[in-house]
Design a protein around this nucleic acid. Structure first.
Lengths: 233, 233
DNA sequence: AAGTGGTCTAGACCACGCC
DNA sequence: GCGTGGTCTAGACCACTTC
């Protein structure tokens, strides 16, 4: 039994991955402990730990103290979505970016958002509607509610040069949030904005962010017909 | 100048995060090197490295050798999507899962998939259509092309007990893939499957996976009306 | 109680990429 | 060239979890 002498954590990860893929270790199996693997590979335990931590992040193995490391039975597909600010998404496609502020008013929270956006009595909310264009074609329609108590500067910002989207990314840090993706049927207003027929299927996303326990903003983005959101596995 | 004496990497990450959020370090600023921070916090450089690596993964700072670490100007929103096998997505909602294999035949690749799915001449492809149900209501309609040369056992699997989706997750490892999400308008066939009207907006996803340079499978999943895909930020 | 992964240290060498 | 982050080591202690 010769030692494998892999000493970089990526090499070790590939070797472990190979054993999983080749069924040397079956789904559900307990694999050797870090100390044993370190001895086998002739490296420090830290290095094995790094490799296993990486495999655990992608869901291929599950790790628990004392219980050890097991090969996952149904490894989930994991994908990381990177949602850039809209300006960058447009310019990354080689298109020209501009935006128009269509609405900007202090408004009460619509009842259907009560669950996602829990506010103290008397909180003031700013509602904004923005259309983002790529090469002068409508690209994303953005409807946003922003908590003025949590983001004071928002009320006096102009949004001519910098959109509400960009302003918040640069000025309002968040500690958490959730996001949801779905399909909607264009109503008459949205259809007119996108120069399409009512009933067209549109891709949409909603995002709520908060800082600590304080809600920051809730936004719904409706994408132009035919939009596809891509990611790598 | 007293040392901060934070010695766990999560504590250090929170302290650094705080300085970024409070604008002690402005967007675009170069922050001190790992060695300096280690001295300030009274810990090993490795520990600071771990904290900074974590911040870099979420996109809040960008790191380059020799150039140092900078606070990101437009920190992107990053979200990790975990796409479980369909059975688990259904049972996690507390619903009963079942599936029906509707079509299963060897078929040529439709021309519109030629780009995503580059095959050697003469490769045999299996086409399958499966409806997945949650509590006996149609949940996901799955159309799949699978490379029989890359996944030999697929041809003889029954898919009565285990769906094609689940079978592939358990039996066909992949080294890479891409995924795309979009909205579609239900055609007459799909509308009938989901007991809705033609033209209904539906959420859909396509996934292509491969192992090394060999394509494994291409699948399109069309979700029941009203489906929302959720994730945390 | 004991075994496993999680983390920290102090030191070292290396690779990348600005200058 | 040389400064910075990236990684590796050998050892230690700790935290969690199962037994």
């Amino acid at each position: 039994m010769t030692a494998k002498e892999a000493n970089s954590w990526t090499q070790i990860r590939e070797e472990l991955l190979d054993r999983i893929n080749k069924r040397v270790w079956q789904p559900g199996d307990l694999i050797p402990g870090e100390a044993d693997l370190a001895e086998e590979f002739g490296c420090a335990r830290t290095t094995v730990n790094r490799a296993l931590r990486d495999l655990a992040e992608t869901g291929l193995v599950t790790r628990r103290r004392k219980a050890g490391t097991r090969v996952a039975v149904n490894p989930p597909h994991k994908a990381t979505l990177t949602i850039p600010i809209i300006r960058e998404e447009v310019t990354a496609r080689g298109a020209h970016y501009r935006h128009t502020l269509m609405t900007r008013e202090v408004r009460d929270l619509p009842p259907h958002l009560g669950g996602a956006f829990q506010l103290v009595q008397g909180t003031r909310l700013m509602f904004t509607e923005t259309m983002h264009y790529a090469d002068d074609r409508p690209f994303i329609f953005e409807e946003r509610y922003t908590n003025l108590d949590a983001v004071p500067g928002f009320e006096s910002a102009s949004f001519e040069d910098v959109s509400a989207n960009e302003w918040l990314v640069q000025n309002a840090p968040y500690s958490g949030g959730d996001m949801v993706f779905f399909a909607v049927s264009a109503d008459e207003t949205i259809a007119r904005y996108f120069e399409t027929g009512p009933g067209t299927a549109l891709f949409a996303a909603e995002r709520t962010t908060w800082y600590g326990s304080s809600p920051i903003t809730h936004v719904r983005m409706t994408y132009a017909p035919g939009y596809r959101m891509r990611t790598q596995l």
